[in-house]
Design a protein around this nucleic acid. Structure first.
Length: 157
DNA sequence: GCCAACGTTGGC
DNA sequence: GCCAACGTTGGC
């Protein structure tokens, strides 16, 4: 895994959890991820200190709303074996957690959302996963150059 | 609200 | 192990 800091994009519908919520809370558990590829990224590749583009999906406008940081290593997502939880998975148990989560902390909220359309128009973001049609993965690795470019766009407001 | 794209499930 | 059917995601 190494010590090299990685960069990620995490998606959230702001109606359920927004960058403003993270700013208010300071820190939150990124629970409810029920996709194997996304889980593997959290479990195997995310490291404390990794920076995250916080992406608002299914809203207007869609785009990157701010920055977060991985606060702690992956641990079992106990909401998976809570029958009352929205993300309950009957295959999961304390003995066999199946799913994991990480803790995420607030870093910054952009003055204005860096819109998806704006990102598509920026040539420097060519190849970024989130720009690909049909790309539904809720946790995506991001190139350092792409991360920096988006952050710069965000600071401009 | 529509629907394309995708991941997952389950019959065979 | 294939693959059709299904449910979900998420932009538009």
């Amino acid at each position: 895994m190494g010590s090299k800091r990685r960069f990620w994009l995490i998606k959230s519908e702001p109606g359920s959890y927004s960058i403003a919520d993270l700013e208010r809370d300071g820190r939150t558990s990124w629970d409810g991820v029920r996709n194997y590829q996304a889980r593997n990224f959290m479990r195997d590749e995310m490291a404390v200190g990794d920076l995250l583009l916080f992406y608002h999906s299914s809203t207007e406008p869609t785009g990157v709303a701010g920055i977060g940081r991985v606060f702690g290593p992956a641990y079992p997502d106990y909401t998976a074996w809570d029958a009352n939880d929205k993300h309950y998975d009957p295959r999961a148990s304390k003995e066999n957690p199946v799913w994991v989560m990480v803790d995420v902390e607030f870093v910054e909220k952009f003055p204005a959302v860096v819109r998806l359309a704006e990102m598509k128009a920026a040539g420097e973001l060519d190849g970024m996963l989130v720009l690909k049609r049909g790309q539904r993965l809720s946790i995506q690795p991001v190139d350092e150059a792409h991360f920096k470019a988006v952050r710069k766009m965000g600071k401009r407001g």
